[in-house]
Structure formats: C-alpha cells, structure tokens
C-alpha cells in the first residue's frame, strides 16, 4: 500500500481543543486506498467525528497533516473532492427532494437540463423515484437519509465521508440501508470513510475497521475484514463475521482500559463550543 496513491492519508494528526485543553486526537496515522470502505469506530468522545472533519477540512488539526487525493485537505475541499453525509440528513426544508439533491450541482454551475437528468439517475439509485417534488418533512427518516446520500454522490466525488449516517434509524431500516450503501459503493467505486458506533455495522460494511480509543483519541488498532464480497444478508450469519465482531470488540475493550477513565466534557460539546468562538 503506497501513501502516494492513497485517497486519504493522515500523518501525525493531532487535535487539541482550546477550550478545556482536551486532546481529541493524538498522532493519528492512517492511509486509505482507492475503493476501500473504512469504518472509524470507538466510544463517544473518542474523536472519530473530529477525525472525519479533519479529513473534510471542516476542523483544522493542531498538528500533523491530512491529505486527500494527494492534495492538502484544504485544496481537496476547494476542489469538491468529497461528499459528506451527517447523522441527521441536513436537508433544507425550503427545497424539495429534487432540489436538495441538486444543490451541489447548482453550486458547481450545472445547467438545468443536466441537473434534472442527474437527479433522475440519483433518485433511481437510492430508490426514491417519484419523490422528487416531495418536501423533506414528508419523508421518513430512512428516506431522508437516502436523499442525503444521493446529494453527496450527485457530483461523483471520489470520496464519501459518512458521520454515523444511520445512527438515528431503527435496526430494520439501518440494515436495509447498509445493503443499499454497499450496492451504491460497488456501482460507484467511491472510497468511503464511515463513522459508526455499531460494531456489527462496521464489520458488515467495511474492508477495514479502524478502532479508536478515547482521551486521547488514538487508533487502537486496525482490523482487516476478510469477509467475501459482495456482502449479503447471510454474511451476518457466517462464523467469520462473529470472529471479526469479537476482534473489534476486544480492541475496543483494550482501548478502553488504557484510556484515562476520568470523566471529561464530551468531544461533541467542545466541538460546538469552538465553533461558536
């Protein structure tokens, strides 16, 4: 695996939040190759969301460097090298489904005809054909998240960043969207970085799982997921699946033990606090 070809390359990335001086990330080293689906998993407050935002140039690291497609993360953001999906779908109520999906295309200056054609393709991809002129509040949570994924993929970015995208959904919907995400991943060839706190979800989806520990946020280990592709409903029943789930869980436990047990303000709160400054 060469660092030059990597879609994402993190070298010595650290992040200290000024407020409270909490070390959210410490010395993160990680390279993600084209076509991979890498999950970041860890307890809440381990910095996984912060790490995703460092890759997306939405949070500046205190030390170290994040590179995306061989460029600085900043340049990659300016070049629109990634699409992002948040835990809440972040759809704009004043735009209907079609217009939410085509928002990035408008910003890129695509003309109306090209946008409409692309929106139709994407609606088909996420199985929402016919919902184009619905408003976000008329959709279920799962449907909203599918719109959000379609929007992130609209301009075919080489990288998709996903921050606990299915965390707020019920188990049934989550499993269905997991399958859908894998299908989209296979057809689009996009590299995906996927933040989750569900071990089963991480193992089921990923080619590799990066296990993080909290305070300071570190990568406690990387588990290679050698389950056969494509993954199906049966994948979840294979003995190897359970072995890998156990392996990830063991890493999480090991990380937990080594981390300072003192209760500190959560990373999310600090993140918001810094944002307000």
């Amino acid at each position: 695996m060469s660092a030059e070809r990597a879609v994402v390359s993190l070298r010595g990335v650290s992040k200290v939040f000024e407020k409270g001086g909490v070390v959210a990330l410490e010395e993160i080293e990680l390279a993600i190759q084209p076509g991979e689906l890498v999950s970041l998993i860890g307890p809440s407050g381990c910095g996984k969301s912060t790490l995703l935002r460092v890759i997306g140039d939405l949070v500046q690291p205190s030390a170290g460097e994040a590179r995306v497609n061989g460029k600085t993360a900043h340049q990659a953001r300016l070049d629109r090298d990634y699409g992002i999906v948040f835990q809440d779908a972040v759809l704009y109520d004043w735009r209907n489904v079609g217009k939410n999906i085509s928002l990035p295309l408008e910003l890129l200056g695509w003309d109306r005809g090209r946008r409409a054609a692309r929106v139709r393709e994407l609606l088909e991809l996420v199985e929402l054909t016919g919902f184009e002129s619905h408003h976000p509040w008329q959709l279920s949570g799962g449907m909203q998240q599918r719109v959000s994924i379609a929007r992130a993929l609209s301009f075919e970015p080489p990288l998709l960043l996903m921050d606990e995208p299915f965390g707020a959904l019920d188990e049934m919907t989550r499993e269905r969207l997991n399958m859908e995400l894998l299908r989209i991943w296979e057809t689009s060839g996009t590299t995906i970085v996927f933040v989750t706190h569900s071990i089963a979800e991480a193992v089921f989806l990923s080619t590799r799982v990066a296990v993080m520990s909290a305070r300071p946020g570190r990568i406690a280990g990387v588990v290679d997921v050698d389950l056969p592709q494509p993954r199906t409903a049966e994948t979840r029943e294979q003995p190897r699946f359970f072995e890998l789930v156990t392996a990830v869980r063991d890493r999480l436990r090991a990380g937990e033990d080594s981390a300072a047990s003192a209760e500190e303000p959560s990373e999310e709160n600090l993140y918001v606090a810094e944002e307000r400054l």
């Binding site: 935002r53 997306g56 953001r77 992002i84 809440d88 972040v90 704009y92 928002l103 910003l107």
Partner: peptide, 27 residues
C-alpha cells in the same frame, strides 16, 4: 442555523455570501 447545515455548505467550498443566500436567509 444548525452547525451541520453550515458544515454541509462549507464542504461544497461555498463562500459566506452563498451560505447567507442559500441557508441563513431561507432558514
């Protein structure tokens, strides 16, 4: 405005004016 709404626009490298027009004013 929800921070994630702004982050989304930043991920598209949108400038302040675009954020104002497309997100802050409508919301």
């Amino acid at each position: 405005v929800r921070p994630s709404s702004i982050e989304l626009m930043r991920s598209y490298a949108a400038g302040e004016l675009t954020v104002l027009r497309r997100v802050r004013i409508p919301s």
